[in-house]
Computed example of a mutant assay.
Amino acid sequence: MAETSGEPLDTLQTPCLLLDEARLRANVARMRAHLTGLGVAFRPHLKTAKSLDVARLAMTAPEGPATVSTLREAEYFAAGGVRDMIYGVGIAPAKLPRVAAIRAGGADLAVILDSLEQAETVAGHARRGGDALPVLIEVDADGHRSGVAPHDRDTLVAIGRCLTAGGATLRGVLLHAGDSYALSDPDAHAAAAEAERVAAVTAADALRQAGLPCPVVSVGSTPTARFARDLTGITEVRAGVFMFGDLFQAGTGAVEVEDIALSVLATVIGHQRAKGWIVVDAGWMALSRDRGTARQAVDQGYGVVCDRAGRPYPDLLVTDANQEHGILALRPGSGAALPDLPVGAQVRILPNHACATGAQHDRYHVLDAAGRAAAVWPRINGW
């Protein structure tokens, strides 16, 4: 649970993870308002947050609903009172006993799958344990990753019939439009959201026409959730990284740099003036090795460097990272001046990928309106 601290930033041990609570709340409120206007329920994805304190701000009720990406998350959130969850990674047979234990503790944890082989395993588990395990069939929205093709009626129906005959519960279909991460134009994102919607409705209709239940039609990614214009036929939307924002999502246009709520506080520990370098104590162990922006129009190195108030320095990036050393330098070709940052000065670094950077830390130092670390919110890692 949260601990109060009220510390000025210069008393914190670096590197550490900062969370701007006002930005977090604003990002959540914006997404909720958008989805409410489209008439769908919101099931936040907690894979980025991994924190009960953040979850309680994001969810519409203390009991959920929520999405998780690991069974460690499911166990942690269930212990914190979250009751309605989807484990959003294709189920592996060896994980079914853990799923059963979480469900036995009172949580309604659903799983996803996309093959008849998995369905047969889940049906066998349901028969043996007498647990009508709820299942959503993963449908491929765009060829990005996993899922049954939305027009593959035979496979969808075979999976659905196998589940229901075996005593499991067919709860619906689930899609993730991962290819939206490669886009950067609002109209293109809106088109991806519409393609995701059509794929979801097509798959749901195939099940219903075969006499199978499909009460839940679940879609979601941060870009498609942000830019969807019509969600007719969809019952719920999942999204998660939007809460924090990151440079990759800013590169897609799904968030603004000013929306990014997460940063890493680091301290200057040296200089290589002949090379135009400032050295800080945050390397890839604090920032992660994620270089997702290298594939975008603007390469942000290992992160954008800001002052302690969170204002970016012109063209100052983490251009290289060793395990515990970060190299700050100006963007190649920049005409900006390197800021005068003496040893002991603190900077904040905006992450390329909030999920990956967050995973390097076990707590958030939560900033209040005055920029002080007003609380510590624990977060978990692992599978």
Rank of each mutant, 00 (worst) to 15 (best):
R229F: 04
I327S: 11
G39F: 08
M31T: 15
G129D: 11
P62L: 01
H125I: 13
H365V: 07
R23S: 14
V347E: 13
K95N: 11
T164P: 07
N352Y: 07
W284Q: 08
L136T: 06
R171H: 15
V139W: 09
R295P: 02
D179W: 00
E21N: 12
A193K: 01
L156Q: 04
R30P: 00
P378M: 12
I278S: 11
R23P: 14
G166M: 01
S51L: 08
N381G: 15
V280S: 09
E120G: 10
G326E: 07
T169G: 06
T48S: 15
A336V: 00
A119D: 12
G129L: 12
R372K: 12
A274I: 04
E7I: 00
A225L: 11
D108W: 10
T36Q: 12
D20R: 07
R23F: 08
H353I: 15
R171G: 15
Y302G: 15
I234A: 09
R98A: 15
L231F: 07
G88F: 09
E196C: 10
L136W: 03
P134W: 04
M85C: 04
A282Y: 03
V157D: 03
R197Q: 00
T155H: 09
R98N: 12
R171N: 15
T67S: 06
D259Y: 06
L247V: 13
A294E: 15
P351N: 13
D131S: 12
V148W: 11
G245V: 03
P186S: 06
A100L: 14
R98E: 13
L328C: 09
A78Q: 09
G270Q: 11
G124M: 13
L262P: 15
G64A: 01
V217T: 01
G166Y: 02
S184G: 12
K95C: 07
G64D: 04
L341M: 12
V198G: 00
D187Q: 05
I159A: 15
R363P: 03
L262N: 10
V241F: 06
S218F: 08
T14V: 02
T4L: 13
S334D: 01
A188Q: 10
M1W: 00
A210Y: 08
P342Y: 04
V305H: 09
L317A: 13
D131H: 14
E75F: 11
I137N: 02
G37K: 00
G251I: 05
Q13T: 13
A55K: 03
A41M: 11
R311C: 08
V366T: 08
Q272W: 01
Y181L: 14
C162P: 05
G143N: 13
Q249K: 02
C214T: 09
G283S: 03
D114Y: 10
R56C: 05
G344K: 06
A41T: 07
H271P: 09
V68C: 06
T48M: 08
H361S: 03
A26V: 04
R348N: 13
A191D: 05
A210C: 06
D140T: 03
A274G: 01
H151Q: 05
R56A: 06
L12H: 06
D187I: 02
L9P: 14
G253P: 05
A188F: 03
D152C: 05
A274W: 01
R208K: 14
T235W: 02
L133T: 14
G245Q: 02
